[in-house]
Simulated scan of single mutants.
Amino acid sequence: MIAVQNPNKISTNGLGRYGEEVAARRLAEGGLCILERNWRCAEGELDIVALDGDTLAICEVKTRSERGFQQPAEAIDRTKADRLRHLAERWLVERWPIHFSRLVLAAEQAWGVEPRPDAESGGPAPPPPGGVRIDLVAVVNPRRGAAAVEHLRGAV
């Protein structure tokens, strides 16, 4: 027997990619600076890493179709929340110094300040002044029209 897929149905992977694209656009429109998308390591993936002012926002994107039985927020249980916290810590150790030095260089250039010789060294970077929070971006894809997007700050 050959299974035929409904051509009007978006695959789960396709729906997820669509949701992440919509979420990134909405976050940027809301003033967040997207630092990375789909950062991966051996232990998992972070969908979106962004700066919200001086706060580092780790954004988990959950996308569902309008016909789905589960709301996006219901997909984050204790295990998933713990894993997101661990991945956020790992991202801070591995990636924050690089982004921090780039942000410092950009600020120095914008202010007309002579760049420091160690600005690109990737040396010790202070933690984000506003701390780190884990957000949920819930995207619901309706049958028709634009997706509904809800950004829940500090949801985890």
Rank of each mutant, 00 (worst) to 15 (best):
V4D: 03
Q5M: 01
Q5A: 11
K9I: 08
I10R: 15
N13W: 11
L15Q: 05
R17T: 10
Y18T: 00
A23V: 06
A23P: 12
A24F: 03
R25T: 14
L27M: 04
A28T: 15
G31Y: 05
L32R: 10
L32H: 11
L35E: 00
L35C: 05
R37Q: 12
N38Y: 07
N38T: 05
W39L: 01
R40E: 00
R40K: 07
C41V: 07
C41A: 01
A42C: 00
E43L: 07
G44P: 06
L46T: 05
L46E: 04
L46P: 14
L51F: 07
G53H: 06
T55R: 12
T55D: 02
A57D: 04
I58P: 05
E60A: 12
R64S: 13
R64L: 02
S65M: 12
E66M: 09
E66N: 05
E66H: 07
R67H: 14
F69G: 07
F69P: 01
Q71R: 15
P72Y: 10
P72N: 04
A75I: 12
A75F: 15
A75V: 10
A75L: 15
A75M: 15
I76Q: 11
I76S: 06
D77W: 10
R78V: 14
K80S: 14
A81L: 03
D82V: 13
D82S: 15
L84T: 08
H86N: 11
L87M: 06
L87P: 13
A88R: 14
W91N: 02
W91K: 06
L92I: 05
R95E: 13
W96D: 03
W96C: 06
P97Y: 08
H99T: 07
F100N: 10
S101H: 13
A106H: 12
A107E: 11
Q109T: 14
A110D: 09
W111P: 00
V113G: 02
E114V: 08
E114Q: 05
P115S: 01
P117K: 00
P117T: 00
A119K: 01
E120H: 11
S121Y: 12
S121I: 05
P124H: 13
P124Y: 15
P126T: 09
P127K: 02
P128F: 02
P129N: 01
G130V: 01
G130M: 01
G130L: 01
V132T: 13
I134G: 10
D135W: 09
L136D: 03
V137I: 11
V140T: 15
P142R: 03
G145P: 05
A148I: 12
V149W: 00
H151M: 02
R153Y: 04
A155V: 09
V156G: 08
